[in-house]
Computed example of a mutant assay.
Amino acid sequence: MSRKRLCMVGAGRVGRLHTRNLIERAGRRAEVAAIVDPSLDTAGKLAADYAVGAVYATLEEALAHGPYDGAVITTPTFTHRALAVAALDAGLHVHLEKPMAMNLDECAGITAALRRSDRILQLGFMRRFDRDFIEAAELLRGGTIGAPMIIKSLTHGPGLPPAWANDIRTSNGMLAEVNSHDLDTVNWFAGAEPVDIHVRVANFKGRERGVTTEHFYDTLLATVTFESGAIASIAGVCPADYGYDARVEVTCTGGMIQVGGTGPGGLASIVSGTSRRGEAVFGSWRDRFADAYTREMVEFLAAMDGEPVRVGAAEGTRAVALVLAGTMSMLERRTVALSELRAPGLTLSWQSGAAAA
C-alpha cells in the first residue's frame, strides 16, 4: 500500500477527528497534505496542531495546488454534492460524511460522478466500522438466530447540533443529521428494502435554548416497515443532556441481538427483574465510536488500493430516501411510502425548488 496524500475538506469536529486518526493511528499510510475550510482561522488552527503544510478556503484552490490521492469531506450536508462531484471529477477517491446529500437529485449527481470516474466513494456511517455492529450483522446474515422481526435503534446526542443543522431547509433536520445512522443500521440489519416510514416529533428544549427555527424538533420516533415483513423503530433525542447513547436490539424468529449501551460496559443482562450498572456514560460520539472512526479511515485507505468499500453510494442514497419520506411524514402527519418519492414532478416543500428524484 503506497502512502496516500489526502485533502481534508472541513476543519470542524469531524474533520479534526479524521485528521488525528489519519496522522496518529493509520500507521503512516497517509499524509494530510492540505486542510480546506471557509474559515481560514479554523483551518489554520487544525493545520498547526497536526503540522499540515497547506491551508485553503476552497476545494478549488486546493485542487490547483495538488496532487492528492483522496479527499475526506466533513462539511455541512448542503455542500456535499458540489464538493464530492468536484473531487471525483478531479480524480480523487472520496470519503463523504453522512448524510450523503440533501435530496435524491443530489445523490444521483454524486453517483453519476462516481460512475464516470475510476475512483471509490465511502460513506461515513461509522457504525458500519464498529466491531460489535459488524459482528451483529454477520450473525444476522448467518441465519442461526432466524429472520429479523423487530429492530429497535436509537441515537441520543448530548447537545444541540450546529445552527445550520437546526433548519430542515439546510439539513433535513435531526432525522438526517443524527438519526440517519439509525436509518442505515435498520436497513443493514433488516437485509431488505424499506417500504414506508412514519415519523412523529416533539420539541421539548429548543425554545428555552434559543432555537426558534420553524419545524425544529429535538425528539422523534419513527417506524419503518420492510419488504421482508420486518418492522423497525427509531428513537432520537438531541439534546439528551445525560451523554451519548447509541443502541440497537433485534428480535428474530430464533433469538435476539443487543448492541451497545450507555457506557463502555459491554453486553448486559437482567436477571429476575433486577440490574445494577455503574459504568460511566459515554460523553460523546467520539468516545463511543473511537475505534470505529479509526477503522473507517484505515479502510478508506485500503479501498483506495482496491479493497472492497464497506458502505457507499447505494446505502447513502437509501438513507436519504428514508430521510425525505420521513420528513414528509412529519410535515404531513401520515405514513409515507418510499414509492411516493418516484412520483413525476414531486418537489420537496421544505427545499425550495428541489426535486425528490
Rank of each mutant, 00 (worst) to 15 (best):
D41R: 10
E332I: 10
S272V: 06
L175M: 11
Q351K: 07
N203D: 15
M304F: 03
M174C: 09
K45T: 15
G353K: 10
D132T: 13
G283C: 07
T42V: 13
R310D: 05
G210S: 04
I134L: 00
D218V: 06
C7D: 00
L348C: 07
L220F: 10
A355K: 14
Y244S: 12
A192I: 11
M330P: 04
V248L: 15
L221T: 14
Y293I: 00
D132M: 08
R28V: 01
A355R: 15
Q122G: 01
T170K: 04
Q122M: 13
G229W: 12
A33N: 07
T219I: 03
V211F: 09
A136C: 11
V52R: 03
G273I: 10
R200Y: 02
E332C: 04
T79P: 00
R288P: 00
E249C: 09
W188V: 01
L83I: 13
A343S: 15
A101L: 04
G12L: 09
G278R: 08
A34C: 10
S352N: 12
G159H: 14
F204T: 15
R247H: 10
S233E: 09
E193K: 11
E97A: 02
G353F: 07
G243H: 06
T155S: 08
T19K: 00
A343Y: 06
S339G: 04
S349G: 05
E299V: 03
A337H: 13
L154T: 13
M8Y: 00
V36M: 01
A51M: 07
A90W: 07
A112V: 02
P148S: 02
M102D: 03
D291M: 09
T155L: 10
V55Q: 04
I231C: 07
A137T: 00
A64C: 11
H65A: 14
G53M: 11
D287L: 14
V250A: 03
R13W: 06
E106I: 08
A303F: 02
A87L: 07
M328A: 14
A165P: 08
N187L: 07
V281F: 08
R169W: 01
A30P: 04
D291R: 14
C107E: 03
G283S: 13
G143T: 07
A57F: 00
M126I: 14
D182G: 13
D105Q: 12
V52D: 06
R310S: 12
R28T: 09
E214C: 05
T170D: 01
S284K: 03
E61S: 12
P38G: 02
M8Q: 14
P239Y: 10
L338K: 12
F125L: 04
S269K: 12
E332Q: 15
E106H: 15
Y217E: 10
V311A: 07
S171I: 01
D118P: 00
L6E: 01
A113H: 06
I231A: 01
L114N: 01
G283N: 12
P76H: 11
G263Q: 11
V199N: 10
V72S: 06
V224T: 05
Y68F: 15
P158K: 12
R28S: 14
R141H: 08
G236D: 05
A30D: 01
N203T: 15
A48E: 09
E138T: 07
A165C: 12
E138N: 03
L83R: 10
L301I: 14
G44K: 05
A84K: 04
W350F: 05
A325L: 08
L267H: 12
F129L: 01
K4A: 15
F282E: 02
A64S: 15
M330A: 15
S180L: 06
R247T: 13
L301W: 04
